[in-house]
Design a protein around this nucleic acid. Structure first.
Length: 259
DNA sequence: ATGGCCTGATCTTCAGGA
């Protein structure tokens, strides 16, 4: 079974590449982030023609998450239980579903913007709520993973040059502590293989030729429970999908499971 | 190749992304 996570940076803009990738990559379950659509605008019909059901939690131009599956889609939970909200809005950043033998949660963690911004405090509270929300799934014997854009680089090695991130979000002690809390709660970081260069970056800024220069970050993560970790046979970043015209600024992270 | 981001909406300018 092949599952993956991909921040598509607008499913409308990415639709031709997304459909082609699903047809060619052998992916059974895909966790999607930044759909940037309403649920009504989500291309469920086109995906159904390829054999995929869709669970969508999306409200408009910002955020939006989904799970598409061709191996079943049950027990869908839209939204994050205990979501702290931002400026009194509960943004669509989490959706969970059971897809055949595996349960997954697609997450788009708040960016944080600046360390002294209210969005950063929201980000840390959001992580707290996530940890509580997934406790039961983590403890279950079912393979379970929280997959998505975490907007945190777990270590200094997960950015192209840590000195370029002095004072920035995504690399702070508090954000990394939030990841550590998830690991202590029973989730393991399933680190993918890079298909080129030394480190499995998953995001490269559109600007300043960051992708050709491999100035990337590893911020799209797969955190799996014990049963999930035992089932993993391979994992890699599909950097080919970051190339060329009409690419997202994130590449898919693919995980193969023996289930 | 000697470059210099992309998206959708408030739509020719902006916020947000990270």
């Amino acid at each position: 079974m092949r599952i993956a996570t991909w921040n598509v940076n607008s499913i409308t803009a990415r639709l031709p590449r997304l459909l082609a990738w699903l047809e060619n990559s052998g992916t059974d379950v895909l966790c999607i982030q930044e759909t940037k659509t309403t649920a009504e605008q989500f291309p469920s019909d086109q995906l159904r023609e390829l054999g995929y059901e869709s669970a969508v939690h999306a409200t408009g131009r910002w955020n939006g998450v989904a799970i598409v599956s061709r191996v079943g889609l049950d027990d869908v939970v839209k939204g994050l239980e205990g979501d702290p909200g931002y400026e009194d809005v509960h943004e669509p950043r989490s959706v969970a579903a059971t897809c055949g033998p595996v349960r997954v949660r697609s997450v788009y963690v708040p960016n944080g913007r600046e360390v002294d911004h209210a969005h950063y405090a929201y980000k840390l509270r959001w992580f707290e709520a996530l940890k509580d929300a997934v406790a039961a799934d983590v403890a279950s014997g079912t393979p379970f993973a929280v997959m998505g854009d975490y907007n945190v680089a777990p270590t200094d090695e997960d950015v192209w040059d840590i000195t370029a991130f002095d004072g920035s979000t995504h690399v702070t002690e508090a954000e990394r502590a939030a990841l550590a809390a998830l690991r202590e709660a029973g989730l393991s970081d399933i680190v993918p293989r890079p298909l080129k260069y030394d480190h499995p970056f998953t995001y490269w800024d559109y600007r300043q030729l960051c992708f050709p220069k491999n100035r990337g970050m590893r911020i799209d993560l797969v955190y799996g429970n014990e049963a999930f970790g035992k089932a993993v046979s391979d994992s890699y970043v599909d950097r080919e999908e970051r190339k060329g015209k009409g690419a997202s600024d994130h590449a898919p992270v693919v995980v193969d499971l023996d289930v």
